[in-house]
Design a protein around this nucleic acid. Structure first.
Lengths: 155, 155
DNA sequence: GTCCTATTGAGAACTATTCTCATTAATAAA
DNA sequence: TTTATTAATGAGAATAGTTCTCAATAGGAC
């Protein structure tokens, strides 16, 4: 058996074991796949890539673990509106959080980050205000803009 | 045949006919249902309510027309993350646009509106900046906060 | 190494949504 | 008002993404 702790997804282990989750090979493969890309992958794509690492992995295991990883906050689940749910690694590595521009025609997703400080401040203040007003513990947010990308607008 | 133009969803007709859509009874029933509530309804709920107005309406018709209404901008489609897609009337009646607080546990949705001017300004400026930077025509946006509602936090 | 039980793989089951197609009805034209 | 055109419909089949079931496996505490 390979040593799971050698791998580049090491930073996830603390969180996993804190949540009393075993560090299984399928889990490991999924995290490897997600950490190897900046793209948003759907379950099928994750399944295909993970199968190259763990050939016998099952699709149900992919779904089960994605749900788990989303629940413990390691992965961010994201619905585009065309029935393809996609997943991406949460900002565990202190990479900048990002928002999305989604094309309603071709469903492509543009990430944008590089927020100015005033954007971060704005969101933080907003979250504070809403938390208080609605007695709601905010854990994260999703800011997406919908419209038409350059390609689709000119096509 | 009842006169469709008598009904309270009159304000939608201009848009519908502009888009060369016929003013059918099923469409009318769906708009009536959506305009009679402030809640977010899923397709099944809309089907049930619309069936009371048009008993023979089919579920496929509900889906077809919701898609149409979303495309022409009369209805806003909204995915909660637990596979229940919900719909609500867009702000055709100049009601204030709103954002959401979504409980990750019970999937309840709190609407909030009452934005201050600086929030509107902020979003407008952001949209301008993003449109230019990414050559992307922004049509609308979705700002949602995820977390735990008071009930679930204390349960 | 042994034990406990969380996790798995495989495939069936489920569910939301979309498709197909013959029939109906909204609208434009006569 | 009647007629013609064709968009829209209802019913049910089909699809696709996801979840469930259950016997077998394997992580990790001891």
């Amino acid at each position: 058996m390979r040593n799971l702790r050698d791998k580049k997804t090491f930073w996830c282990y603390e969180k996993l074991s804190k949540c009393c989750c075993r560090l299984t090979k399928p889990r490991h493969a999924i995290l490897d796949v997600l950490s190897a890309t900046e793209k948003h992958l759907n379950a099928e794509q994750i399944y295909k890539s993970a199968s190259r690492i763990e050939p016998n992995i099952g699709l149900a295991t992919i779904y089960r673990n994605l749900e788990l990883l989303v629940n413990i906050g390691l992965v961010w689940k994201f619905e585009t509106g065309n029935s393809k749910t996609v997943y991406e690694l949460a900002e565990c590595r202190h990479e900048s959080h990002h928002h999305h521009l989604i094309c309603k025609k071709c469903n492509s997703i543009i990430d944008y980050s590089g927020f100015r400080d005033n954007e971060k401040d704005f969101i933080r203040r907003r979250e504070e205000m809403l938390s208080k007003k609605y007695d709601f513990k905010i854990q994260n947010h999703c800011i997406d803009f919908y419209g038409l990308c350059a390609k689709c607008r000119n096509a």
